[in-house]
Nucleic acid binder design. Structure first.
Lengths: 155, 155
DNA sequence: TATTGTTATACTCTATAACTATA
DNA sequence: TATAGTTATAGAGTATAACAATA
């Protein structure tokens, strides 16, 4: 916890951007490991959770659509979906007009898993955000998550 | 690009924190894939780059020290270090007083790889930060990277 | 021909378990 | 006994290549 610092954080010239990118890469690896460790034991991996969450947000979708949205190859998404199907969390139904395609959707159990995950997961980061940041810092982090999310969605 | 919004971003109550954590997890996966894709072809993986960067910042260190710092098991760090050694980017020297330990340090080639990486890598994220965010948003993201870095280092 | 999806194969990252050498 | 490191093995995530079915 720190005293409130109301000055503008940093001047964002080119050097800072390279520096920021470098730190972001390191941060990305650290976060991945910490979050994975925090959410292990709930039976779904992070990739699987991302797909469940997306199906929940956006409704049923095909393998190729999900692969594009998550920016992985259809083969990789196929593997993730197979695991989810085997776990009974998603189901595939035939596409009404195109027999090549399969529509993936959440099962009842999949919906329950998402609700459960909302409650249990990410406890490490929630506590860290609450206990180690002051109000202003928390607002900065929350907004940055939105902004970075926008950058990874666009292109 | 957006008009400047000077209002405080969000009030950070418990619900927001869970929401933020959930988004952060999704973001983490997306960033990992994007950054890996952006830096592939330079011959070092993200884990290897993290170790090179740390050795460059903090100087020579043992396997166990590096494992603790990066929050991986010594076995995992050992594998990363073996790959880096085989690539000629780090070297191991005996610890002066404890013959169990090995001191890892950057080779000349390792230093060059880091300098090269600074120039080439992360171009996607640098461009995105520069082109898709305004000054205030950039400052928010840069500060949040620092804050989140602090959270993953502590604990 | 192009698209959707699958199967086969391989590499990276990480983990656990069991071991050796040294302290 | 405890610590530093290695070897063996396994699972998740991802990729490329080759293929079948369908459009």
């Amino acid at each position: 916890m720190r005293p409130q610092e109301q000055q503008p954080a940093v001047s964002a010239d080119q050097t800072d951007l390279g520096e920021a990118a470098s730190k972001l890469r390191a941060l990305s690896g650290q976060l991945t490991r910490r979050l994975r460790a925090a959410s292990e034991g709930d039976g779904v991996t992070m990739s699987q959770a991302a797909v469940l969450s997306r199906l929940n947000r956006q409704g049923p979708a095909t393998t190729v659509e999900l692969a594009r949205a998550e920016r992985v190859r259809p083969q990789s998404m196929g593997a993730t979906l197979s695991a989810l199907e085997e776990a009974g969390l998603v189901q595939r139904s035939p596409h009404p007009s195109d027999r090549r395609q399969m529509i993936m959707s959440l099962t009842e159990q999949g919906h329950r898993k998402i609700a459960e995950g909302r409650r249990i997961k990410e406890s490490w980061i929630v506590q860290a955000l609450r206990d180690q940041l002051d109000d202003r810092e928390r607002a900065v982090v929350i907004e940055a998550i939105e902004l970075l999310g926008r950058l990874t969605e666009d292109n």
